[in-house]
């Protein structure tokens, strides 16, 4: 587990290009498989026809396609958020869920689910998610600054905020038990019920984040040698760090508002990408986004198919796959270094 972007390595543009093309192809293939497979078996010509209308239009265009697109966008957003947090906090296991941002978003959503009428939740939940995530991130930066400690302190402040949000969520579940089932599924994270309108919202949101992602990727690319390089280039490491955290929050909020609090993607996708393309930002950013998209797409497909006609929320599939990977990663790390 090499620390993000602190290790100089020969640039490998050809390798990165190959990896990204391969990942992109895999995403497309998996997306097509996801559209073709489901609770209702459809022949290939009916699938194609369904894209343009006809009797299967609902299943293909309004049910499976939106889920696939949402999974790709959210997966990429969560993975990038994880990468940025890992870099900003210089910690290989920082991710939106570990440092409490996802929990803050979840708390905001839960407050909205419980305290607004069912008819409002279409907009009150996204609003709660954004407010919750932003509040945790601002507290994170403010308290981290106040404590004046190093970067690890920041990560643990995030953990503490996440624990507090979790405690309040538990309090809400106990005091307002009527919405527990819905809250649990939402907290687990699922693409169930995604619509074309969701795609539009999320795309606009992510497009707005895109300039920040590109600029940060370019800055990180030059800061390969750490804070000193940034300073010599006239960039304040703290500003870059705040930019990374805030962009991560925006990406997380968008994804969580669409699919709920899916964990582990932000933790694992950057690692897998790093194994494939090495630590340089210009390689890592696209590879991480594609890996995240691929992972959530796969988790969603498995969740839809494995227990027909029931669904297993994609977030749970991600955890069940991601959990063992994390064990493996930690043990491997311990053996390699110990």
């Amino acid at each position: 587990m090499s620390m993000a972007l602190t290790q100089p390595q020969m640039s490998q543009p050809w390798r990165t290009t190959l990896v990204c093309i391969a990942l992109g192809l895999l995403v497309v293939v998996l997306a097509l498989i996801s559209i073709a497979l489901g609770a209702v078996p459809l022949s290939l010509d009916r699938v194609v026809a369904g894209l343009f209308g006809g009797p299967d239009a609902f299943i293909i265009s309004q049910y499976r396609l939106p889920r696939v697109v949402i999974a790709i966008l959210s997966g990429a957003a969560l993975a990038l958020a994880g990468l940025f947090l890992q870099v900003a906090l210089r910690n290989p296991i920082a991710s939106p869920d570990v440092v409490g941002i996802t929990k803050g978003a979840g708390l905001g959503a839960m407050l909205a689910l419980i305290f607004t009428p069912p008819a409002w939740i279409v907009w009150s939940v996204p609003a709660g998610v954004i407010l919750g995530a932003a509040l945790v991130a601002l507290l994170l930066l403010a308290i981290g600054r106040g404590l004046g400690g190093g970067i690890t302190t920041l990560a643990l402040v995030g953990v503490s905020l996440g624990a507090l949000a979790q405690a309040v969520m538990q309090f809400l579940m106990v005091r307002y038990p009527r919405g527990i089932d819905q809250s649990m599924v939402w907290l687990a994270g699922s693409t169930y019920g995604s619509t074309v309108a969701d795609i539009i919202s999320l795309s606009i949101w992510l497009l707005a984040c895109l300039p920040a992602v590109v600029i940060l990727a370019m800055m990180l690319d030059v800061s390969t040698f750490g804070d000193d390089t940034l300073k010599s280039l006239g960039l304040s490491p703290n500003v870059v760090r705040a930019g990374l955290v805030l962009t991560a929050v925006a990406l997380t909020a968008g994804a969580v508002a669409s699919v709920g609090s899916i964990g582990f993607l932000g933790l694992l996708a950057p690692h897998v990408a790093r194994l494939m393309v090495g630590p340089r930002a210009r390689h890592l950013v696209p590879a991480t986004a594609l890996t995240g998209a691929l992972a959530l797409l796969l988790a969603d497909l498995i969740g839809r198919l494995v227990a027909l006609p029931n669904e297993i929320p994609a977030g749970i599939v991600a955890s069940v796959i991601g959990g063992p990977y994390l064990f493996f990663l930690l043990l491997w790390e311990a053996r390699r270094r110990g």
């Binding site: 609770a39 209702v40 049910y63 919405g179 599924v185 699922s190 169930y192 006609p309």
Partner: peptide, 27 residues
């Protein structure tokens, strides 16, 4: 009831769906 399968509902070609506000308001 928590997450009814919309594909299966659609192939039944129903002419009326009766849903619960709390559970199905979002879909």
């Amino acid at each position: 009831r928590l997450e009814p399968n919309l594909e299966l509902i659609s192939v039944l070609q129903p002419d009326l769906i009766i849903a619960d506000e709390r559970r199905h308001g979002a879909i």
